[in-house]
Amino acid sequence: MSENKDERERPTDGVMLTHEQQRGRRARNIAIGVGVALLVVLFYAITVVRLGGVVANRTL
C-alpha cells in the first residue's frame, strides 16, 4: 500500500507537456477520431450507393 503511494508521489521523469501542448494534443486526437468515424460512414454510404439495395438480397 505504502509502495503504491510512493509510486504515485514520485515526480515523473517523462516529458512534462505544457498546457498549450496538452490542449493541442487533445484537439488533434479528437479531430483524428472524428475524421476516422466520418470516413467509415462515408465508405459505408459509397458501398451502398455503388452496389445498390440488392446487396442485402443474398441467399445465406
Partner: peptide, 18 residues
C-alpha cells in the same frame, strides 16, 4: 521514459491544433 533525439536533445512537442 524520455526519448532523446540522435543529437541528445529532447524531442519538440508540437502545439499545433486542427
Amino acid at each position: 521514459d524520455v526519448s532523446y533525439l540522435d543529437n541528445g536533445e529532447l524531442p519538440r512537442i508540437p502545439v499545433a491544433e486542427p
